[in-house]
Design a binder for these strands. Structure first.
Lengths: 258, 258
DNA sequence: ATCTCCTTCTTGGGATCCCAAGGTGAAAGG
DNA sequence: CCTTTCACCTTGGGATCCCAAGAAGGAGAT
C-alpha cells in the first residue's frame, strides 16, 4: 500500500492529465483537502511531488498552478532519457560479462517478436508490448553498472507519467488496417534495433551499443514529431491514451530480481 | 531566507560529510529534533531530501541510516553529469544563433585564463576558479534549449553537494610547487577544452561540440581516478575540501540572468 | 540456557492548530 | 469615477498531537 500523499499525487496527476483542471488553473490547498478528503499535510506533500514532476508550477504566494506538459515537453524529456540510455548501453557493453542481464534482454526481445508475429494490436496486447519494451529499457538502465543512470532517468520531469522507453501509439492510425500495418512495421523496426543493441552489448562493442541506442531513441523522437505534425489538433490526453503514460500507477510490471 | 527544512538538510549534510555521524549510523528523528531544535515536521522533510540526494538511506521501519558517498559514487555521478553536458553542448551548437549565451561562455573562459596566468592557487583564487568553471558549465546546461537537461543534472544524487562541473583539487598536490605546476597544467588543459567547445558551439558544429565536451568530462573522470589511486587512504572529507563540494550552500555564484 | 511472548519504544504517516506574510477585494474618500 | 486603504483570506511553513504497525529488548516458561 502506497502512502496517502503518493496516492493523492497520482489522483491529482490523473485529473490534470484527463483535463479535470484546466491548464493554468490555480489549485487551492483547501479545495484539494475538500475534494480528496485529506488534511493539508499530505496535500502539500503531493503538490511538492507534482511540482518536481513538472505537472504543477509554483506561483509564489499564490499556491500552485496547473502546467500540463506540451508535446514539446514530452519530446524534450524523451530526448534526455534517450541520451541517458545510450550511456547505459555503452556502459553495459563495456562491462559485458560482469553482469547477468543478457538473458533478460533476449527474453524481452523474443516476447515483443511474439506479439508482432501475432499481429493483433488490441489494448491488452499493446499493454503487454509496453511492458516488455519497458523491461528491455529498464534492464539496460538499471544494469549498466552506474546506479545513477537509472535513478536519474526516473527523476526527469514528466517521466513518472511515462513508462520506460515510452512507445507511442496513435489511436487514429490503429483504427485502420493500413495503420496497423504501419504500426507493426514500426514495432518491427524498433525491435530490430533492440536486437542490434543486444548484440553489441553481448559482443562488448561499446561504441556500437551507444550509437545504436541513440539511433533507437532518435527513431522514437522522430515518430513523436511526425505524430505531432499530423495531429496538431490532438489533445495531450489523446496522445497519452495510447502512449506509455501510466495513469494507474499499479501496473508496475518491472519487478527487478536482484 | 531558505525554509527551515532546507537549512536543516544543509546542516545535516554538512555534519555527515564532516564525519560527525559515522557511516552507517542511524539517525533518530527525536534525536535530530533535539540536536537542531526543531519539530519533527521539518526534520522529516529534510530526511526525505537527503535520501533523494543519496546521503541517507532509508532503513524500512528503522528510520534513516547515514550513507556517505564513496569516491566511486561521486565518479559515477560525474560520469552521468558529463554525459548530459555533452548532450547540452550538442543541442547548443545545433541551436547556435537562437540563443545569446556565447558572450557568457567567452567571458568565463577569459576569467579562468586570467587566474591561470596569475598563477597563484590560494583558496580564494580556487573558489573563484570554481565559480567561473561553474558558470561555463551551467550556461551550457541551462541554455541548450532543452530545459530538462539542466534540471535533470541537478537531480543526480550527490550533485547538490557538488558545484557545477566540479573541479577537484588535491590538497597534497597543491602543497608543493611542482604540484602547483601540475595543477596549473591541468587547468590550462581544461580551459583549452572549454575554448574548443566554445568554438564548436559558435560554429554550430554539433558533433564536435558533443565530442569535445565528452573528452572534457573524461579528463575529469580520469583525474579523479588517478586521485583516488594515489590517495587511497584519503577520506572523503579531504577530497571534498578541495573539490567543488559546497558545504555552505550560500555561495550561489551562478545567478541566472534570464 | 534457550526460546517464546509480551511490553515498550520508534518510526511512519496524518490531523489539527497556529502564526506570519503577502495577496485580494470591497468600501470609503477624493 | 478613480484611488487609496483596510479588512479578510490564502499560502507558506511549523509545532503538536495522535495512532497504528513494526522493531527491540526483557521477562517468564520450558
Amino acid at each position: 500500500m502506497e502512502s496517502i500523499d503518493t496516492e493523492l499525487a497520482n489522483k491529482i496527476r490523473k485529473d490534470v492529465i484527463l483535463g479535470t483542471y484546466d491548464d493554468g488553473a490555480r489549485l487551492s490547498e483547501a479545495q484539494l483537502c475538500d475534494t480528496y478528503g485529506v488534511s493539508r499535510t499530505p496535500v502539500r506533500l503531493a503538490l511538492r511531488l507534482l511540482e518536481r514532476e513538472g505537472i504543477l508550477r509554483r506561483a509564489e504566494g499564490r499556491g500552485y498552478v496547473v502546467h500540463s506538459p506540451t508535446v514539446q515537453d514530452i519530446l524534450q524529456a524523451v530526448q534526455v532519457r534517450g541520451h541517458l540510455e545510450s550511456l547505459a548501453a555503452r556502459l553495459m557493453a563495456q562491462s559485458s560479462g560482469r553482469h547477468n542481464r543478457l538473458p533478460t534482454l533476449e527474453a524481452a526481445i523474443d516476447e515483443i517478436d511474439k506479439f508482432i508475429r501475432a499481429g493483433n494490436l488490441d489494448d491488452a496486447s499493446l499493454r503487454k508490448l509496453q511492458q516488455q519494451n519497458a523491461v528491455f529499457h529498464k534492464t539496460i538502465l538499471d544494469g549498466c553498472g552506474n546506479d545513477f543512470v537509472g535513478y536519474t532517468c526516473d527523476q526527469i520531469s514528466h517521466m513518472p507519467m511515462l513508462e520506460s522507453g515510452s512507445m507511442v501509439f496513435d489511436k487514429q492510425v490503429l483504427s485502420t488496417s493500413e495503420g496497423i500495418q504501419r504500426s507493426l512495421f514500426r514495432l518491427k523496426l524498433g525491435n530490430s534495433q533492440h536486437k542490434v543493441i543486444f548484440e553489441a552489448i553481448q559482443k562488448g562493442d561499446a561504441v556500437r551499443a551507444e550509437a545504436m541506442m541513440r539511433e533507437h531513441s532518435n527513431t522514437m523522437v522522430e515518430y513523436i514529431e511526425v505524430f505531432e505534425k499530423r495531429n496538431a489538433e490532438l489533445t495531450l490526453t489523446d496522445l497519452i491514451s495510447y502512449s506509455g503514460i501510466n495513469l494507474d500507477q499499479d501496473a508496475s510490471g518491472t519487478d527487478e530480481a536482484e
